[in-house]
Nucleic acid binder design. Structure first.
Length: 430
RNA sequence: UCCGGAGUAGCUCAAUGGUAGAGCGGGUGGCUGUUAACCACUAGGCUGGGGGUUCGAGUCCCUCCUCCGGAGCCA
């Protein structure tokens, strides 16, 4: 089968071409009808004129339904009346299948209905644009790490231990014992960093949190770099470089998609390096200045993050957190043992936390006592503690939430549209 | 788990306690430049389930279910 794509339509001006696709919509007007053809790479209008095609081709119109699969042959012509500037004067149409009545009409639908039809909703313009941007964000991450000497290390999905407590874990039967679905590749990433220096992992992670908000999924993807001989400040540099790289890539390569989504690009273009860095204490001050009665020592809520992010045009990094608010494996600040060397990056415009990370505790005895304090089973962290026995070094890393990053760049309010098939508290299908 | 909101035609929504309606989508017909086309006609309903109040319930009360938004937790 010959393959030509609508995305390349300009190359075919004046020539005959066949596009294989689906009927997005059609309009009929007696002696002429129009077919909007979608082929996955783009859309173009096909014009069928009664006087210019065989009778049987013209007569196809009433039999076609939305999303019927067709191959359309015709001559590509420049025409300002057509969306995209080009259109196809039809010579022949081959119908592969006449679609049954398509549930998604061009008019409005509720999200619940659309999510029930997610397998079809993917064909819609906006969803197509969002997932196209997701693809570019992933590619940007891989390119960034590749260009900077990082090695991709795949970490396991089945794990025996929890890195941040067991309450949020999905457990699965694993022969005669229980395994958990990973909630982070970090601990394995630390092991790999000691082997390769700079690594990253990229994969799905699972959290059994009963969260019902626009920022949560039970299955989401994380990009987690881990660097040996790296302190908190360098860690923050890597984080801002990565996010800046991703953003610029999207601004360069996803103009069409951002336009389809009506994204206000000026807000994205306003982002500049270096990103602001504030301590946890400074963030609390911002909240208090804005009249929030904040409970010192706790993590920020969604509304708090929005207020903090509104103070800046670029993503803001909050570092040096009260130790109670952060995980056991974070190193403490040498100047204040009550502070953990963690960092969160908050996206602008209220999109919330997109990065969490920090410098890891590299001392064996301190780490052992932390595991004890947190009442975690030391036996399961035996291999992790080995990393502090055999050539321990200062090291840091972070996790970038892919879906939240895509939500911010696309300007989509709900994270569930940034992944092809979202898994939430109430949704396991389709 | 808690707090709010919503379940009516395929979809999005109307309907003082008094005959269940519109737009879109579907069907039929018309139209040679339409862009969510337009015009005419047409089919389509166990008002989420169960119980109650009432002469009479989509509407009021109780209960269950489902979904949406938020909180907590987090990326």
């Amino acid at each position: 089968m010959e393959h030509n794509y609508i995305a390349d339509i300009a190359e075919f001006e004046g020539k005959d071409v066949t596009f294989h696709g689906w009927v997005y919509s059609k309009r009929s007007s007696g002696k002429i009808w129009f077919l909007m053809l979608r082929d996955g790479t783009g859309m173009t209008q096909c014009v069928v004129v009664k006087a210019e095609v065989p009778e049987d081709v013209f007569e196809i119109e009433p039999t076609l339904t939305q999303e019927s699969s067709v191959s359309v042959t015709g001559t590509v012509r420049k025409d300002d009346r057509s969306v995209g500037g080009y259109e196809l004067t039809v010579k022949d149409i081959i119908v592969h299948q006449v679609a049954e009545e398509y549930p998604i009409s061009p008019k409005e639908h509720g999200t619940s209905f659309l999510m029930d039809h997610r397998h079809l909703w993917l064909r819609s313009k906006k969803q197509h644009a969002i997932l196209g941007i997701r693809n570019q964000v992933i590619k940007a991450c891989r390119d960034f790490f590749e260009e900077n000497g990082f090695t991709l290390i795949d970490t396991p999905i089945f794990t025996a231990n929890a890195c941040e407590g067991t309450s949020n874990l999905f457990n699965v039967e694993y022969f005669d014992r229980t395994a958990y679905l990973t909630q982070s590749g970090q601990l394995y990433g630390e092991a790999a960093a000691m082997a390769f220096g700079k690594i990253y992992c990229f994969g799905p992670t699972f959290r059994a949190e009963k969260s019902k908000t626009r920022r949560h999924l039970t299955e989401f993807w994380m990009i987690e770099p881990e660097m040996a001989y790296c302190d908190l400040d360098e860690n923050m540099e890597w984080a801002e470089q990565l996010v800046s790289f991703i953003l610029n890539r999207c601004l360069e390569r996803c103009k069409d998609q951002l336009e389809t989504l009506d994204r206000d690009i000026s807000k994205l273009e306003a982002v500049s390096l270096p990103f602001p860095r504030i301590t946890y204490d400074e963030a609390v001050n911002i909240l208090e200045k804005n009249g929030i009665d904040f409970d010192y020592g706790t993590d920020f809520g969604g509304a708090d993050e929005t207020i903090i992010s509104e103070q800046f045009e670029s993503p803001v990094m909050i570092h040096r957190w009260p130790k109670e608010a952060k995980a056991f494996y974070l190193k403490r600040d040498a100047d204040n043992d009550d502070l953990a060397l963690g960092v969160d990056m908050i996206a602008p415009e209220g999109y919330g936390e997109i990065i969490g990370g920090g410098q890891r505790e590299d001392d064996l005895e301190i780490l052992k006592s932390r595991i004890k304090e947190h009442e975690l089973p030391e036996e399961e962290f035996k291999w992790y503690l080995d990393l502090r026995r055999y050539g321990s070094v200062p090291h840091s890393g972070f996790g970038l939430g892919l879906e939240r990053t895509v939500a911010w760049i696309t300007g989509i309010p709900h994270i569930r549209e940034t992944i092809p098939f979202p898994r939430t508290l109430a949704r396991l299908e389709p």
